[in-house]
Design a protein around this nucleic acid. Structure first.
Lengths: 233, 233
DNA sequence: ACCTGTGTTACGCGG
DNA sequence: CCGCGTAGCACAGGT
């Protein structure tokens, strides 16, 4: 990874359009071709582009212009004054980050601890396809009614809408989306055994925001909190 | 901004929990106290924390441990081997990025080009409060029916849900959210003049994804595309 | 401080 | 390549 400190300006065009006025910043070019222009605050770069190829030119003032290109995007950096350089030789294959308590782990844990949902609940399958994307968990309750469960670490209003979409799709299986996978279709067909007419939704999370709680209630979606010590159960 | 290259490992605990195994990386500390640990690929740092205060210790192996703390978060970096250092003196106040074609600009432009919506449309107001957050534009159509318009650059499925929430809130103004601002309430009261019983929604964007189009149709929300050359009109 | 919405979100996964 | 969903999302703007 190579760092250049320079008085520079930049123009980006692609997914959006931005202009970065002249100023002194760090330009970081990584081994995979990713570039970022950083100022002296915050986490995110001001301008950036990933896995790009670059070429260099000189303008009429003799200033160096570096053009990064990829995927119908272009980032052009003008070096008005080069200040310093630094080379950081890093690892080729970083072992990478290990996350803990992710939604996926929570989903896995819940699939093995049905009692959290109440008595008589059983798992049909994780990531059950609905035709509007897979629902996190499909359960059967004590009356054998299928239940669509959305799992979140922090549940915000969009999570309720997700459940509504899934329930909608489960109740109206005739609506077949272009984006359904073969798996979707096969599963739905082979699972004609499930009667979704009375299906309902549960939103379960470690934290549910007050507005989200209200919104869920309004749309008859049940809400549950995950036991705080779930990881140690 | 100070860059340290080191063989390091890290543990983060706060909004989530992560462990970063030992490896050679760049540790960037910015002037506002933000830290990021970067590997040699991609745009995002592996670990990071913003505007944190740090303190240093040495463990029994004589390795330096830097602990960053803020807002009930903690990031602990162990320096197994220090490799190099670099200081990049940047500007205190960066002029910052100028964006073009943002949703806000698009909204502004649309508010002045009602003809895009059809004949006889007029603007009531931008950011009209609904009790479920402000709708981007509130219009009156040729029959004086209020129309809730959601503006997006790229419209995905969540945008449709947003419109549904707004319409819902407009049709049922008795539901007063905790998060309504005074402005919300005042405006809603003073605008009892509008009859929302027949209100409907329009989703307008530069790009609407196929699934989103279908989903909008299903819920009787109209969709419109912004003229591609809107910026030059 | 929390909540809401945008972003060139980035990133990973699946098709 | 697109579509979808998560993220320690970051960040700005409001209350």
């Amino acid at each position: 990874m190579k760092i250049t400190v320079a008085d520079c300006s930049a123009v980006y065009s692609g997914r959006g359009d931005t202009v970065l006025p002249r100023g002194i910043r760090s330009i970081i070019v990584k081994n995979d071709g990713s570039v970022s222009i950083h100022n002296d605050a915050g986490i995110k770069p001001i301008n950036y582009m990933k896995e790009a190829k670059f070429s260099e030119y000189y303008n009429s003032l003799g200033e160096r212009i570096i053009v990064f290109e990829a995927r119908r995007e272009i980032l052009s950096i003008t070096i008005h004054q080069h200040l310093s350089n630094f080379e950081a030789p890093l690892m080729k294959d970083d072992p990478g980050l290990q996350r803990d308590g992710t939604e996926d782990q929570l989903q896995e844990w819940l699939s093995k601890h049905m009692h959290v949902f109440g008595n008589g609940f059983s798992l049909v399958r994780r990531e059950y396809p609905t035709g509007q994307g897979p629902v996190d968990l499909l359960l059967l309750d004590d009356k054998n009614i299928p239940v669509a469960v959305e799992v979140k670490r922090i549940a915000m209003i969009g999570a309720v809408d997700q459940v509504r979409r899934y329930l909608d799709a489960l109740k109206n299986p005739q609506e077949i989306s272009n984006n359904d996978t073969l798996l979707d279709l096969e599963t739905n067909l082979s699972n004609g055994q499930y009667d979704f007419t009375n299906t309902y939704g549960i939103l379960i999370a470690q934290d549910i925001r007050p507005n989200t709680l209200k919104y869920a209630e309004k749309h008859n979606i049940k809400t549950l909190l995950v036991p705080e010590d779930w990881k140690s159960q």
